[in-house]
Amino acid sequence: MEQAPELDASLVREVLAGNQASFQLLVERYQARLFGLTRHYTRNAVEIEDIVQDTFLKAYSRLPSFQHQSSFYTWLYRIATNTILDFLKRKGRSPIHAVEDPEAATLEAPGQGIVRPDARLEREEIVEITHEVLRELPEIFRTVLIMREFEDLAYQEIADTLGISIGTVESRLFRARARFKQKLIQMYPDFAQA
């Protein structure tokens, strides 16, 4: 998630000093990543734009409180994640909560395995299936899977963003992957390993 922190820090200082054009530069630097992140949670283009816009507006209004303790993008990413989750909650689209203890990771081999996506599937089809399965997972599992598998965040970055320990990230990811496989097989039995 490292994104030329020196340049970011310099742009942030310029914005705080009153250089308004620097804020537009910050938006241009990170808009693609935030649009990409947000589309993992909703496929509606208008909603994606609203969420990303609100994320940047919040960042601007909170910029004086940015302490440079993390990179600007880590800070921005945290605002984006909270904005997305708030949005989904208010839309009533995040009703699935884990019934079991999400941190109670078992170390046994998970149940039935899954196969790799069929070579005949188009990329768009794989994306659609994966998101369909993700939508069925409890929010905490979906969030860590998106952060790790799509966004390629390190455990420490996930921990910092969500305010949890690395041990919790590990156990939550373990559980999330097991649930993803289980749900994929349930929804698409053809992808179960023979």
């Binding site: 693609a32 990409g36 589309r39 395995g113 899954i114 196969v115 790799r116 996506p117 990329r123 794989i126 994306v127 299936i129 994966t130 899977l145 598998e149 799509f150 992957r177 993803f180 496989k181 994929l184």
Partner: peptide, 11 residues
């Protein structure tokens, strides 16, 4: 195998 389901969606 799981990782292979999380493909990049493109730009």
């Amino acid at each position: 195998t799981i990782a292979s389901w999380f493909v990049d969606e493109g730009p």
